[in-house]
Design a protein around this nucleic acid. Structure first.
Lengths: 337, 337
DNA sequence: GTGAAAGCGCTAACAC
DNA sequence: GTGTTAGCGCTTTCAC
């Protein structure tokens, strides 16, 4: 077990000073070719790898960026992680990952942990963070981007879309099909502005047509297949029984469709079911899912770009609004008579 | 823009030495309550956050672990990331993520990058890495765990299962149903021992019954829905036409099933289609997918535990073999007459 | 272009 | 217990 070689060892073997060795490695063009060659040979000979912590300390930069998601296994987040990671890597930043399982205090803890580790920027989902998150970020002077939502009121950098418009988009689609009894199946609305705004969008669209969304027709369940199943059962027990179930995410829809199948409820003949996100499975489930397409990859790319811009040029757009789109497929249809 | 306070500032404000301030923060029980209180007050007052790089340099530890996956958006990897992240977090390690898109050289580059950054351990998928990966890891003396496969021959730490047995399990299921003309749809086998071994398992099971797997009945496609679709078309063009298509991952199966639907091919009446992984969608697709269940969460948990054990106690089992299981659902059936 | 030396901010002996 | 101090390994002025 030999100690790892340091720059000093490389310099000694190459017969140059540590300064030159350092330059040969990080700025090869500031060094004479002969020196460069000697250093490179020494590096190879010793299998030298530079110490990242020491480098970070001297440079006062870590080139790492943290991202915190509600969960990592929902495809919408997985896809965005994929995009972010690729973007960051291309710019020589490293991605650190954490998840909070919809627990605000865990999110705060992760933010603090990231700050401790010296990340240079941070990516968060939504706008409903604990205020202490923003306070910590402000004190540490760390740039951040909130993804998925837009908070026009506050001064945060956001890359997202109007969740309210999304809810309205789907509600109008169903209202146009003649449905009047809608039920909404979402996740916990507390501390989740996405769920809240989407529901609000539905309510608004209904109100515009003189309809009301009864409080008991707003169902809350965890964002899982099982939540979708439970939500469907709850919806079927309502009076009046809804003819359309608007789910807050595709995952919930799949669970709901599956449960409907088990219960012998025809979709969409007896019940229309809609999703939100348009994950890749949505197009190939049976029946194919009517949903709202969210530009997930674009959220990832733009957020990463925005954050890097803040870090490197301290100049980036405050708000980036992305377009969403209704994707009508087979899981919704004309309201039953 | 004020410079961030350092430990020295905290110490000064608290009226103690940097040593005491440091102890108060990292080892509160080694310090008198009164001192602790003064330091804590100063920390709060200045909103002090310690510098991770300096800490890492002094401690010669970074408490971070790198994981490199083929892709991040396949649910099998997303689910394992979820498990790994939670496990690591509970033990106070931070997860760094990278993906290589099935490109060996990118994997090697990520490994080197991680080593540069001083990660204390590394998680990789499969056993078919570039030899330079192991060489770099050995030189840097960094422990690692290979997930998903077992390489009994080499000395690597592995947490996985027998991919060959998995292939055989599915082949036998189909052979028992009377199929004799099987086709295999997998990804590139070069540099992917999982794909290779699963196919080999199929071939072995067929051979045991006196059947041969023709080379042209082994289809290679990217691990995507589109790959599944293309694979199905290719399979239907084969002579003799297979009655069962064994897909190397559930993702491929979904694409294949979707294409079969479009082409008007009845599954499983005219063609049985099987998957591998048992991702959560498998149970609720139509028809429900027959597949091999892989203990994804367990792979993540055990790999994380194994790696931490190597880091902290330098003592961990070389190989951990996990059980897999055939899950027979509706996408496979009796061979057509 | 190159070498010497002064930090970067923290921890861990060590002496008191 | 607490203060003092010597590193941790690298980058970067600043002379030469």
């Amino acid at each position: 077990m030999i100690a790892r070689p340091k720059l000093r060892d490389v310099a000694r073997l190459a017969g140059v000073s540590v300064g030159s060795a350092s330059r040969a490695i990080s700025a090869p063009d500031q060094v004479r070719p002969a020196t460069l060659a000697k250093v490179e040979a020494a590096v190879r000979e010793l299998s030298y790898v530079r110490n990242g912590a020491a480098r970070a300390l001297a440079l006062r930069r870590t080139f790492s960026i943290g991202a915190i998601f509600p969960t990592l296994n929902n495809p919408i987040y997985a896809d965005s992680i994929q995009a972010i990671q690729q973007r960051l890597n291309a710019r020589n930043y490293q991605l650190l990952i954490a998840s909070h399982e919809y627990d605000r205090s865990r999110e705060l803890a992760s933010v603090r942990n990231f700050i401790d580790r010296g990340i240079e920027g941070i990516l968060l989902v939504g706008t409903d963070q604990d205020p202490a998150v923003f306070e910590a970020l402000r004190l540490a002077q760390i740039p951040y981007v909130l993804m998925w939502s837009l908070d026009e009121a506050a001064h945060h950098h956001c890359v997202g879309f109007s969740n309210e418009a999304g809810g309205a988009l789907m509600a109008n689609h169903l209202l146009d099909l003649g449905h009047t009894r809608l039920a909404v199946l979402g996740g916990q609305r507390q501390f989740n502005e996405r769920a809240r705004l989407r529901t609000q969008g539905v309510r608004g669209a209904m109100a515009a047509r003189g309809l009301a969304l009864a409080e008991d027709h707003i169902l809350e369940q965890p964002f899982t297949f099982e939540g979708g199943r439970a939500g469907l059962r709850a919806a079927m027990a309502l009076h009046p029984r809804p003819t359309a179930l608007l789910c807050g995410t595709d995952i919930l829809s799949f669970g709901a469709c599956d449960e409907a199948r088990r219960m012998g409820i025809e979709v969409p003949e007896q019940l229309s079911i809609s999703g939100f996100d348009d994950i890749s499975f949505a197009a190939m489930s049976v029946p194919a899912l009517t949903t709202v397409r969210v530009p997930i990859t674009q959220i990832g790319n733009s957020s990463a770009d925005n954050l890097i811009a803040q870090i490197e040029e301290s100049e980036a757009p405050r708000h980036e609004r992305l377009e969403i789109e209704l994707i009508a497929r087979a899981s919704t249809g004309i309201a039953p008579a």
